[in-house]
Amino acid sequence: MPRAPELNDIVAKYPPGKPRALLHLLQDIQTAQGYLSREAIGAAAQHLGVTETRAFQIATFYKAFHLTPRGRQTLRICTGTSCHIRGAMVLADEVRKTLGAGPGATTADGAFSIELVNCVGACALAPVLLVDGEMLGNVHPGTVARRLKRAGEAP
């Protein structure tokens, strides 16, 4: 299992017994592993000297964290106000139709995890989709499939 040493490496970057670092450490773990496993939350809590109860509470309070494994790519549908009034929810429907999975779900083939996110700060390009951080602006329902296909092919 390559995961275990990796987890230890991330945890070891933080000085032990410093509870303030919990949010940062969990973010680093998620960046490396894509989600927070029970084992990872436990390791983070133990290292920083906080209870598992609090670590789990933090992991469920902040939306940045995922507690289940993610798809290979993350498709984010921005639901900022600008995107909303320019049709973000229509896009969400179109994504569901195209990929067979809607917000909060991962496609059956594990290619995409789909999420709705609060404003990503690209309001001028609304509505916006993000595929693994690559921003697709001014997406209209007719082109969702094509643009997702192209983004999916990107290395």
């Binding site: 639901t79 900022g80 106000t81 600008s82 909303h84 609060n118 404003c119 700060g121 309001c123």
Partner: peptide, 11 residues
Amino acid sequence: EGDPGAFMDCA
């Protein structure tokens, strides 16, 4: 900057 529809601070 949590307001959906604002990105001044980000900029």
